[in-house]
Simulated scan of single mutants.
Amino acid sequence: MPQINTDIQSPTLELDVALFVGKNAKYYAYKWSFLNKRGQPRCTWNGAAFVIGPIWLVYRKMYWQAGALFAAAVLLRFAVGSLGDGAGGFVSYAISFALGLSGNLLYREHVLRSIGKLRSEGSSGSALEYELCRKGGTNAAAAWMLALLMIVVLGIALFG
Results as ranks from 00 to 15, higher is better:
M1D: 08
Q3N: 13
N5I: 09
D7A: 14
D7Q: 14
I8Q: 15
Q9V: 13
P11H: 08
T12R: 11
L13N: 06
L13D: 04
D16H: 02
V17H: 09
A18Y: 06
F20K: 03
V21C: 13
G22E: 10
A25D: 15
A29M: 13
A29C: 13
A29L: 12
Y30F: 12
K31W: 00
K31Y: 04
K31F: 02
W32L: 09
W32Q: 08
W32H: 07
L35T: 09
K37D: 15
Q40H: 13
W45C: 04
W45K: 02
G47Y: 11
A48Y: 01
A48M: 07
A48P: 03
A49N: 02
V51A: 15
I55M: 04
Y59R: 14
Y59F: 13
Y63T: 02
Y63K: 03
W64G: 05
Q65Y: 08
A68C: 01
F70N: 03
F70C: 08
A71Y: 01
A73I: 05
V74D: 07
L75Q: 05
L75R: 02
L76H: 02
L76Y: 01
R77N: 04
F78T: 00
A79S: 08
G81R: 00
G81Y: 00
S82A: 14
G84T: 06
D85H: 06
D85G: 11
G88V: 09
G88R: 10
V91I: 15
V91A: 11
S92V: 11
Y93K: 05
Y93L: 14
A94S: 05
I95G: 02
S96M: 14
G100W: 06
L101T: 07
L106I: 10
L106K: 01
Y107Q: 00
E109A: 08
H110Q: 04
V111H: 01
V111Y: 05
G116L: 10
K117H: 04
E121W: 11
S124T: 10
S124L: 05
S126L: 12
L128D: 09
Y130P: 03
E131Q: 14
C133S: 08
R134V: 09
K135N: 14
N139G: 08
N139D: 15
A140P: 08
A141F: 11
A143H: 03
M145F: 14
M145R: 14
L149P: 03
L149Y: 13
G160I: 09
